[in-house]
Amino acid sequence: MKNHLITALIALVAGFGGAALWSLSGLGHSQTRAYLVENPDILPEMAEAYQRGEAEGRLAEISDEVAEAFPGAVLGNPDGTSVLVKFTDYGCTFCRQSVPAVDALIAANPDLKVVVREWPIFDGSETAARMALAAAQQGKYAAFYHAMFEQGSPSEEGIQRAAEIAGLDMAAAEAFANSDEATAELAKNMAFARTLQFTGTPSWVAGNETIEGMVPAERLAEALDSAG
């Protein structure tokens, strides 16, 4: 069993590029085995590097598409060149709690464009997501986004209140919310999330990184800065 594990780890090492191979270049099977046994602390770092490389590869396949907002579904500067993508759900507590962090990033960076991808994965969230797309279509996305999160978990009454606060034309909004265009957008966002192997909300694309979960504004800013 132990030998099988060591062999698997050696195979994992062989699959790495860059620093991982550099550290073990020129070593045979037995030498690699001995090195791993004597230095087990490098394995988590190598695994993390491998996972990061895999995530970057997945993002590279769709990076331009995922950063292209549904018309109007943007916070901050719609013409900004620094782009943060947020996959969000109005029924998600951590999505709600992340709102101040995103607002702080926007306040600190006038060039920041936040592309919001509606990804309703919680029960009862899809109606709110559809109304958010209708708000985007009317140019009132930011107002609805903030008002909807202030309502707590989505409910028919809460969605109605958020729509009223945002000043939506309700007849037009309800028609758009039930349109094929809204359905297609939600399906697209689901496909993006699956390609990026996101497991929940909030999830982020910041620069060249994919990040899952609620993280500090500083972590997102660091990822954006590292992308140049």
Rank of each mutant, 00 (worst) to 15 (best):
residue 211 I to F: 10
residue 133 L to K: 02
residue 116 V to G: 06
residue 32 T to S: 13
residue 75 L to N: 01
residue 61 E to G: 06
residue 161 R to E: 10
residue 180 D to W: 06
residue 16 F to N: 13
residue 65 E to Q: 14
residue 173 A to N: 03
residue 143 A to L: 08
residue 50 Y to W: 13
residue 133 L to G: 03
residue 188 K to H: 05
residue 5 L to I: 15
residue 116 V to F: 12
residue 129 A to M: 08
residue 52 R to A: 15
residue 160 Q to G: 11
residue 43 L to A: 06
residue 160 Q to S: 14
residue 179 S to W: 07
residue 211 I to Y: 13
residue 5 L to Q: 14
residue 16 F to R: 13
residue 121 I to Q: 09
residue 49 A to I: 07
residue 136 A to K: 00
residue 71 P to G: 06
residue 161 R to M: 00
residue 160 Q to D: 15
residue 183 T to C: 01
residue 55 A to E: 15
residue 76 G to E: 04
residue 42 I to A: 09
residue 55 A to F: 08
residue 146 H to E: 13
residue 166 A to T: 04
residue 71 P to K: 03
residue 48 E to S: 13
residue 115 V to Y: 01
residue 3 N to I: 00
residue 59 L to S: 09
residue 214 M to Q: 13
residue 14 A to F: 00
residue 163 A to D: 08
residue 22 W to R: 11
residue 192 F to K: 04
residue 96 R to Y: 06
residue 214 M to S: 12
residue 127 T to Y: 03
residue 195 T to F: 11
residue 68 E to C: 03
residue 154 P to D: 03
residue 77 N to A: 09
residue 104 A to L: 10
residue 24 L to E: 01
residue 175 A to G: 02
residue 6 I to W: 11
residue 112 L to Y: 03
residue 6 I to G: 02
residue 123 D to W: 01
residue 31 Q to H: 11
residue 39 N to G: 05
residue 216 P to Y: 08
residue 113 K to V: 02
residue 137 Q to L: 04
